[in-house]
C-alpha cells in the first residue's frame, strides 16, 4: 500500500481537518463530529440539505457543501456509512425550521443509519424527508433484493435539489424534484484497478493485467462482470448502451452527461470516453444538454470511470444552471 497518510486509522479525521484548514471561510466542522457544514448554516428560511456517505469518495461529499448545493455532509469511515448520531448532528445544524432533506445512496447501511437518524430528528420535532438514490444499472432493481446502488448520479441530485432549496422551495418541493432526478438518472461504472482502504492495507480485489471489472460499485466491492480490457470506444459503447437500456429516451430528448473518474483515471482518458459517448448519443438523436467530465464520485485511487445520463426537462435544466458555490461544483 502506497499512500500519503499518517495513521491509517485517522485518515478521515485528518482529512476533515485539512479540508477545514483549506476552506475556513466556506465551511466549518461541527465540534466532535465528522460533519462538514456551510459556514453560515443554518441558513434561515431554507430547507437544509444533508448528504452522507463513507469517506473515500472525495470530492463527495464535503466538496458539494456550499450555497446552491448541500448544507452539510456527514463523513463516515472509509467506505462505511456514518452513524446515526453524526447524521442527527448534521440535521440539527442545518435545520432553520423549514425541515431537512436527506440525500441517501441506496446501500443497506446508509439507509438504516439514516432512518435511525431521521427517527431521532423527528423525535425532536424536526421535519425530515429523504430520497434514496439508486442510479446504478449494473445492479438489478427488484423488490426482493436490496435494489440498485447509488453512485455518481447522486451528484446531480445534490445539484438540483440544492438549487431548488436555494430558490426557497419547500421540503415537499425539494423532495419532488429530487425524486424526479432519481427517476431520470442512470449510471454504470467500470474499473481497471482496485483500491486500497488505508486501514485494510491491501487491495479489495485483484485484476489481471488485461482484465477490467464492469459494473463496479464505489466502495471497492467487486463489479458484476470481469472481462478483457477493450478499446475506449468499445467500452464507452458498452457502458452507454447499458445505461440507455434502462432509460426511456425518445429521439429529441435531452440529457446531461457525467463522465466520472474513479480516482486514478487521467482526465485524458475520461475525455476520450466522452468523445465516443457524445457521438453515440447524437447518432441516436438525443441532445446533450451539458457534459460534466472529472472526478465527481471517486473510490480512492481506483482507475476506472462511470457514465451517467440524466434525462432533463426545462425544470431540471433551469435548476442545473442555478449558481453553486460548492467547492467541487462551482458554477
Amino acid at each position: 500500500m502506497k499512500k500519503i497518510v499518517n495513521d491509517p486509522e485517522l485518515v478521515v479525521e485528518e482529512m476533515l481537518q485539512g479540508f477545514v484548514a483549506a476552506h475556513p471561510n466556506d465551511v466549518k466542522q461541527l465540534p466532535n463530529t465528522t460533519v462538514i457544514a456551510r459556514k453560515d448554516a443554518p441558513v434561515s428560511n431554507k430547507v437544509g440539505l444533508v448528504s452522507d456517505g463513507g469517506s473515500g469518495h472525495e470530492p463527495a461529499h464535503a466538496g458539494y457543501v456550499g450555497e446552491g448545493m448541500l448544507d452539510a455532509a456527514v463523513a463516515g469511515e472509509v467506505f462505511t456509512s456514518p452513524t446515526p448520531d453524526q447524521v442527527f448532528e448534521a440535521i440539527k445544524a442545518v435545520d432553520s425550521g423549514q425541515g431537512v432533506f436527506l440525500v441517501i445512496k441506496n446501500y443497506t447501511g446508509d439507509v438504516m443509519n439514516f432512518e435511525m437518524a431521521k427517527e431521532m430528528a423527528e423525535a425532536e420535532g424536526i421535519r425530515v424527508q429523504q430520497v434514496v438514490v439508486n442510479d446504478d444499472v449494473a445492479v438489478e432493481d427488484s423488490s426482493f433484493t436490496t435494489g440498485r446502488r447509488g453512485i455518481a448520479g447522486t451528484v446531480f441530485v445534490h445539484k438540483i435539489a440544492g438549487a431548488k432549496a436555494a430558490q426557497g422551495g419547500s421540503l415537499e418541493e425539494v423532495k419532488a424534484v429530487a425524486d424526479k432526478v432519481v427517476a431520470n438518472v442512470r449510471s454504470i461504472g467500470m474499473a481497471l484497478t482496485p483500491c486500497t482502504v488505508p486501514a485494510a492495507g491491501k487491495p479489495s480485489f485483484v485484476l489481471e493485467d488485461k482484465e477490467m471489472e464492469l459494473g463496479i460499485g464505489i466502495h471497492g466491492e467487486p463489479g458484476i462482470e470481469r472481462k478483457a480490457i477493450t478499446t475506449a470506444d468499445q467500452l464507452a459503447t458498452e457502458l452507454t448502451q447499458k445505461v440507455l437500456d434502462d432509460m426511456n429516451l425518445s429521439s429529441g430528448d435531452e440529457v446531461a452527461v457525467m463522465i466520472n473518474g474513479l480516482g486514478a483515471t487521467p482526465e485524458m482518458e475520461l475525455y476520450i470516453v466522452n468523445r465516443k459517448v457524445s457521438e453515440i448519443l447524437s447518432d441516436k438523436g438525443f441532445k446533450v444538454y451539458e457534459t460534466f467530465v472529472g472526478n465527481y464520485m471517486t473510490s480512492l485511487e481506483m482507475a476506472g470511470c462511470s457514465v451517467t445520463l440524466l434525462k432533463v426537462d426545462q425544470e431540471l435544466k433551469d435548476l442545473l444552471e442555478v449558481q453553486s458555490k460548492a467547492l467541487a461544483f462551482r458554477r
Binding site: G76, E77, T80, S81, P82, T83, P84, D85, G109, N113
Partner: peptide, 10 residues
C-alpha cells in the same frame, strides 16, 4: 450504533 456505521452498526 455510534462507532460502527455501515450495515452492521445499526
Amino acid at each position: 450504533l455510534s462507532k460502527v456505521g455501515g450495515a452492521s452498526g445499526p
